[in-house]
Design a protein around this nucleic acid. Structure first.
Lengths: 127, 127
DNA sequence: CAGAATCCGTTAGGATACTG
DNA sequence: CAGTATCCTAACGGATTCTG
């Protein structure tokens, strides 16, 4: 195998692996939900309050998707009234901690970089 | 500050940092483009060939967005005919290497996890 | 509280064709 | 080669209302 073929193969492998990760974790909300989950928020409305801006509809859909991928466990405690539903992180969810850490670190640096320079790329204010 | 307030503050900080990262790197293509860039692909059509499935329109738009964020440098070599345009990673781009590595590792594990179990979450085939 | 149902606007991004 | 220009649609996601 020649040099550029090696390069191509490595790039393709990297590309495909990252692609898979993005496929599961991508989108606006999934990682945020997982962070809240790992932080200790487990109830539906609690999650909605913690994750600013998410609607019940979207939260519900995202939780289902995450459950399909084994990243959330939905637990119904039927022995209580009213019924309590909890969304719990799984063992598998904890394997994401490194991703979250690394991404968070970079995001922090990036914010400092742009606010430090006084550059505003796009408007993002809320109020 | 009480315990749950600390938790809330930490979670919010983490949330906001990751949010910032997603804002810049999110979407279907940005990270893939950066990987190709870091691997050594610099020309427009070269990138399009390497990143399977991306259209010229989208590639063009994404490159502009990345350039705005300082993650790509567009270099025109006017001393040649025809004019050669190169998209080069910056120093700042290299700060993403860890993210790419971690994300790639996880994606690889995840793929093994699902293919190993024979689970097909959603259809994703191309042909 | 924990959602489902409905409606509806925005947008990411695909397909194709064209240009200097 | 290095893009632009158009057109178009599927998916994302916001707002609101309703329910057991």
């Amino acid at each position: 195998m020649e040099k550029h073929e090696v390069k191509a193969a490595k790039c393709a492998a990297q590309l495909s692996a990252v692609e898979d990760a993005i496929y599961v974790l991508g989108g606006k909300w999934k990682l945020r939900i997982l962070i809240a989950l790992l932080t200790g928020y487990h109830r539906f409305n609690e999650l909605q309050r913690t994750i600013k801006g998410i609607s019940a509809r979207v939260l519900s859909a995202e939780l289902k998707s995450l459950e399909l991928n084994g990243l959330v466990k939905r637990v119904v405690k039927a022995d209580q009234t009213p019924v309590v539903v909890e969304y719990l992180p799984t063992e598998y969810t904890r394997s994401l901690k490194q991703i979250i850490t690394v991404l968070g670190d970079w995001g922090l640096k990036h914010k400092k970089r742009i606010t430090g320079k006084g550059v505003k790329i796009m408007e993002k204010e809320v109020e």
